[in-house]
């Protein structure tokens, strides 16, 4: 059994090198297919992270009248924290709000002087609310308008990111569809290439195969090397893409995170954590595809 397995591998490796250029082209096209798929995963990851960070940034600021007491504002904070849609509600005192305001406008002397004119704290207390999902904002905006708080609320400020989010989602969707089309295209070419490679391999080995049959080789001994060969292709292609991906992500990690600025994820870690799943499943699918195609090619060209 061991001897036979060893020989199957030996024959498969011989096949591989005897048609080196065909093997090379086959692996190249496999790699292109996988690269497209991983590029989609990468872009999708980026888009999701961007969306997440935008969604995190969306907040409502509830400004209270100057005469509203701290108790009222704090009570509303407590009330808001009690809502399941609310992720966080932060109380900002009038003093803090004013110094924040000064800080923000420190290069604009006109504004600063007008604050000084008013004297004291020209702003009221405020509560900054963030939600679990941007879709909850309309509800939260409604909810704060209770008879208890409503009279004291001066203004509700809500930066609308909905359009941006929609845009990112649309672009991401398009990229995914485009990516799937390209991956499908490469996949199709990959199938045709592996089919042809095996066909040529069978042709090149026709004498050997004929003799094998005459001297009583088992079926699987004749088919095995071709199947193994197609598994080699998948393995080599997946390994190359996996190595390439980690090399790329590893050496450009800082550039990638700089590019995405505040988006705080490590793509490298993501691929590291899920690498086994990502590349494992790609290997399994690629292998299944090429083994099936090889089987089909053998059925057509290998008259065993």
């Amino acid at each position: 059994m061991f001897t036979s397995t060893y020989r199957l591998f030996k024959f498969a490796i011989q096949n591989f090198f005897r048609n080196f250029w065909l093997s090379f082209v086959t692996i190249t096209i496999f790699i292109l297919t996988l690269l497209t798929i991983n590029a989609i995963i990468f872009l999708n990851l980026m888009a999701n992270a961007t969306l997440k960070s935008i969604e995190d940034k969306v907040e409502i600021t509830v400004y209270f009248n100057i005469d509203a007491s701290e108790d009222i504002a704090k009570a509303s904070q407590g009330y808001l924290l009690g809502l399941p849609q609310v992720r966080d509600a932060v109380f900002i005192s009038a003093e803090d709000a004013t110094s924040d305001f000064r800080e923000k406008h420190k290069t604009e002397p006109i504004i600063l002087s007008s604050i000084d004119e008013v004297g004291g704290t020209p702003l009221g207390h405020a509560v900054v609310v963030s939600a679990h999902s941007p879709a909850d904002f309309p509800f939260i905006l409604e909810a704060i308008e209770t008879p208890e708080f409503s009279p004291y609320i001066r203004n509700k400020d809500y930066q609308n990111y909905e359009d941006i989010i929609k845009n990112i989602e649309t672009i991401n969707g398009r990229i995914q569809i485009g990516g799937i089309v390209i991956a499908g295209f490469f996949g199709l070419i990959a199938i045709m290439i592996i089919f042809n490679t095996i066909r040529v391999a069978i042709y090149v080995h026709r004498d050997e195969i004929g003799i094998m049959k005459l001297v009583g080789a088992n079926d699987w001994f004749i088919r095995g090397p071709f199947l193994l060969e197609s598994i080699f292709y998948s393995l080599l292609a997946t390994s190359a893409v996996m190595g390439g991906t980690f090399l790329f992500l590893g050496s450009f990690e800082t550039q990638i995170s700089n590019f995405f600025g505040e988006v705080n994820i490590s793509v490298f870690n993501y691929f590291l954590d899920n690498g086994l799943l990502i590349f494992g499943s790609q290997f399994v699918v690629l292998t299944l595809l090429s083994v099936l195609t090889t089987w089909f090619a053998m059925r057509n060209y290998l008259k065993v």
């Binding site: 001897t3 036979s4 020989r7 004498d207 050997e208 004929g210 003799i211 094998m212 005459l214 001297v215 009583g216 080789a217 088992n218 001994f221 004749i222």
Partner: peptide, 21 residues
């Protein structure tokens, strides 16, 4: 029906190899 790339010994051994000897 001999394999040109194999020696005499290898040609004969081939028949045994593919039978799993």
């Amino acid at each position: 029906k001999l394999l040109q790339r194999k020696t005499v010994g290898e040609n004969i051994a081939f028949a045994l190899q593919v039978a799993g000897d």
